[in-house]
């Protein structure tokens, strides 16, 4: 095989960071997929809890115990953020479908806004549900 001069250039995964800057647009797009897919775990947990409640007190105690354990808290808190984030990202897609806010710098700002807003909504939800 002939020796092809490849130079001293960095290759694929090592590009991220010093050579390739991740954009808010691409990262928020990937996050939409990740949150949407991961929400199946929260949905399964919710349905298990409902099925258990429909069966009786003993079954409910088991499911309710898992949902209110540290593991359940972790999944539910993650699902709460994922729901808010995925909903905001979906609304962003509806706005884009009308042809608005498509300019690169506007879309970048839009990405920052939905990430920030999803965190604010998550914290607010926890605070409201905690106090009520």
């Amino acid at each position: 095989m002939p020796d092809i001069p490849r130079g001293n250039r960095p290759l694929s995964p090592f590009m991220i960071g010093p050579y390739y800057r991740p954009q808010w647009t691409s990262v928020t797009s990937i996050l939409t997929r990740i949150t949407g897919s991961a929400l199946l775990v929260g949905a399964a947990l919710l349905v298990w809890w409902l099925v258990a409640a429909s069966i009786g007190p003993d079954a409910f105690a088991t499911a309710d115990g898992v949902l209110r354990s540290w593991f359940g808290d972790l999944v539910l808190f993650g699902s709460l953020w994922a729901l808010w984030y995925h909903m905001l990202a979906g609304i962003r897609h509806l706005v884009w479908s009308t042809g608005r806010m498509m300019e690169i710098h506007v879309a970048e700002t839009f990405g920052k806004v939905i990430v920030g807003l999803s965190v604010v909504l998550t914290v607010l939800t926890v605070l409201i549900l905690w106090t009520v």
Partner: peptide
């Protein structure tokens, strides 16, 4: 997605207050 954008806030606070 439009239906869920409307339902999600209602669902979060209803489920959150029952759990």
């Amino acid at each position: 997605s439009i239906a869920l954008a409307v339902l999600t806030p209602f669902f979060i606070f209803t489920f959150g207050s029952i759990l």
